[in-house]
Simulated assay, not measured.
Amino acid sequence: MRVLAALSGGVDSAVAAARAVDAGHDVVGVHMALSRTRDQFRTGSRGCCSIEDAGDARRAADVLGIPYYVWDLSEQFEQTVVADFLSEYEAGRTPNPCVRCNEHIKFAALLDKAVALGFDAVCTGHYARIVVRDDGTRELHRALDAAKDQSYVLAVMGPERLARSMFPLGDVPSKEVTRAEAAARGLSVSAKPDSYDICFVADGDTQGFLRARLGSQPGDIVDSDGEVVGEHDGAYAYTVGQRRGLALGRPAADGKPRYVLSIEPVNNRVVVGSADELLVDVVAADRAVWFGTPSADLECSVQVRAHGVPVAARARVAGDSVEVTLADGLRGVAPGQSLVLFDGTRVLGQATVTSSRRAAVAAS
């Protein structure tokens, strides 16, 4: 097969490309340039979009003996991932930019361009497994290494894009094995630190980035009874479940910490309350993407954060909407988060959280 290997400049994508070469595929490496103003991205290894990463990707391609190109996807990245990030926060929701990058860039813009150029598949260094059943059905599963599993952020891709994807690292037992393989192959990125944080927030200060883009929007911080207990400079800078940085002028009557319960963009208010008030056991979501046709009523496990613990649930599906009832409650579930449904290790589908509630409270 003709395979386009997405080379981020990190060790995972380099080893994934090497394994595709070993498998006998005709591999071409490509690095995605996601900004035309490169200095807005951090240097070093904190993100995945620094200028050093482009050089590391080129050196990896040279070692592997494969052609290497840089594709400018900066306009698509700004118009989709960054724009979505800003609009979601401004609307009082909590987005996951890695999910949106996989949806709009890696498995949309990149994959579509690859197919148009005659490639059969895109290979990435994500930790996830593709299982092919006897009837040819391709399923997305968790990686063998649970600590590195990235199936959560890949669930948005859907079956059609999964059909043209390769994840050679899905069966790797640990990141240490990947690093050892990279060193044995002579790849200079073998000891490169993992990337983390949001790649387009250059200094890691998400609130500062939002403030610079969205400006000052002062308003009230209120408790669950509507009483003003503080002020904020922009509701967009807060997320459900947040405890630190509230700077409240009035302590809670019981002396216990307060947490952000909800964001009300229409009223420009941040609502705070106790840890108990954060607990929810019913989550509604829409814009569902399914791998196969789901049952209208199914038992599953769900996850609402990339590194969250899966929780047993019962899901009721209606079109592209889904409502899950959790066996055990979760705290800090925010609109905008990605809700991923699993059957064991298999990804069933993904949807975007619209609301959450406590069933007992709603019934009273």
Rank of each mutant, 00 (worst) to 15 (best):
D120F: 00
L86T: 02
D62T: 11
A116G: 05
A327P: 03
E231K: 14
A363S: 11
D149M: 03
D320T: 12
A23N: 04
V99G: 10
V28M: 09
G65K: 04
T325V: 15
D286N: 12
C300L: 02
R138I: 05
L110E: 06
A17K: 12
V228R: 15
L64N: 07
R243I: 04
D134S: 14
L7E: 04
A5N: 08
V21C: 03
D254P: 08
V70R: 03
R243H: 13
S301M: 05
A163I: 00
G329K: 03
L169T: 05
E88S: 13
G308E: 10
E176F: 07
V63C: 04
D220S: 12
L7S: 08
E78M: 14
W71I: 01
E277C: 02
T206H: 09
P294H: 13
G9V: 11
Y259V: 03
V317Q: 03
K175V: 06
R164I: 01
G332Y: 06
P159R: 07
L246K: 05
A147V: 08
D134P: 06
V270N: 10
A57C: 01
G332F: 12
G170R: 09
V222F: 00
G170N: 13
G319Q: 09
D220H: 11
I66N: 10
Y69M: 02
R164D: 06
A128W: 07
A362M: 02
V271A: 01
N96K: 10
E181L: 12
R244P: 01
A60K: 14
H126I: 04
S188R: 14
T80N: 04
K256M: 09
K113S: 14
G125L: 12
R287Q: 12
S262G: 12
V302M: 07
C49M: 02
I263Q: 07
E160A: 13
E299L: 01
E160Y: 09
I66R: 12
D135Q: 06
Q207G: 15
V189K: 15
D134V: 05
A143H: 06
V333K: 08
D328K: 15
S188C: 04
G186V: 01
A23D: 10
A54Y: 01
P193C: 05
R142K: 15
L187T: 02
L339F: 02
E139K: 15
L298I: 06
G125Y: 13
R138K: 15
A146D: 09
D223P: 04
G344A: 03
V63W: 03
A363I: 04
T345E: 10
G44V: 09
T239K: 15
S190H: 15
A306Y: 08
A61D: 05
D171L: 11
E78I: 05
D254R: 07
S295I: 00
G44D: 13
K256N: 08
G55E: 13
L117D: 10
G118V: 05
G249P: 06
M157T: 15
A334C: 00
S174L: 03
K175Y: 14
G255W: 04
R244K: 13
E90N: 03
A109Q: 11
A237H: 14
A237I: 05
F77N: 11
V324H: 08
E227Y: 04
V27S: 09
A146F: 02
E176T: 08
H31D: 10
V15E: 04
G292D: 05
Q242H: 12
D112M: 03
Y68S: 06
